[in-house]
Design a protein around this nucleic acid. Sequence first.
DNA 1: TCTCCATATTCAGAAAACCGAATACAAAGA
DNA 2: TCTTTGTATTCGGTTTTCTGAATATGGAGA
Lengths: 122, 122
Amino acid sequence: MEIFDPPARLFKLLGHPARLAILDALRGGEHCVCHLEAVLGLRQAYLSQQLMLLREAGLVKDRREGQNIFYHVAEPKVFKVIDVALLDAPRRKPRAGRPACSCPKCQPAVPAPELAGAALST
Amino acid sequence: MEIFDPPARLFKLLGHPARLAILDALRGGEHCVCHLEAVLGLRQAYLSQQLMLLREAGLVKDRREGQNIFYHVAEPKVFKVIDVALLDAPRRKPRAGRPACSCPKCQPAVPAPELAGAALST
DNA sequence: TCTCCATATTCAGAAAACCGAATACAAAGA
DNA sequence: TCTTTGTATTCGGTTTTCTGAATATGGAGA
């Protein structure tokens, strides 16, 4: 009977729209909290709470880079699970272009790091 | 954001060991409540409550046959979801032979319905 | 109609999840 | 060292889930 405890814990964690949205947002790779905040429209503290739960369960991992902390999904398996559940769901729009996030990775002016100096000449 | 509500509801429902065990027990096909009671070792009332939740969500459907009510999984998709989640879980034993359930389908003396008369001659 | 059996429903207390407000912390720059 | 910025944690009240106990229902046979 207890064999179902681990998967049940996983599902319980997935059984929440905000956490699902977070994981889905991390599909393409890691993102900083400020990015998730902007993209998902969630308050920072709330987001951080949900990230803590996901982190404690080992579903996501974090990495600090300067002031920002980047999260990524540690178990790609969750994507498979989510995908199956989303099978016959109405498809979400791919995403608007402007992240409105100030982290280094989100600055549209800095697509390639080696061009950073050129922008200052104007 | 609300696109994640339906899958979240599904996951929330799956986020419970007893309900997972029920669904897993219904893998091979339909079973009556008394069968589940015997196989899973759960009290009838409790089992019925969980079945009600699964039924309300449309995950399982019931069918009456005489005194017994047989349940089956309505959305095979859930098996896919569960399977992915169970991927690296320790495999459960296939099942002992004796169901200890009195429903017509579980009587080991009646493997094929057309032989029902022969057993009475002893 | 009465009774039995399989199953369903209601109720209620305990436990857990949810989520906002406030606050703490840690790195980076002045 | 002070401030700012990005993120984490704690606290507390509200809502939801969990689960046992009691009870109801509905079909089948006597």
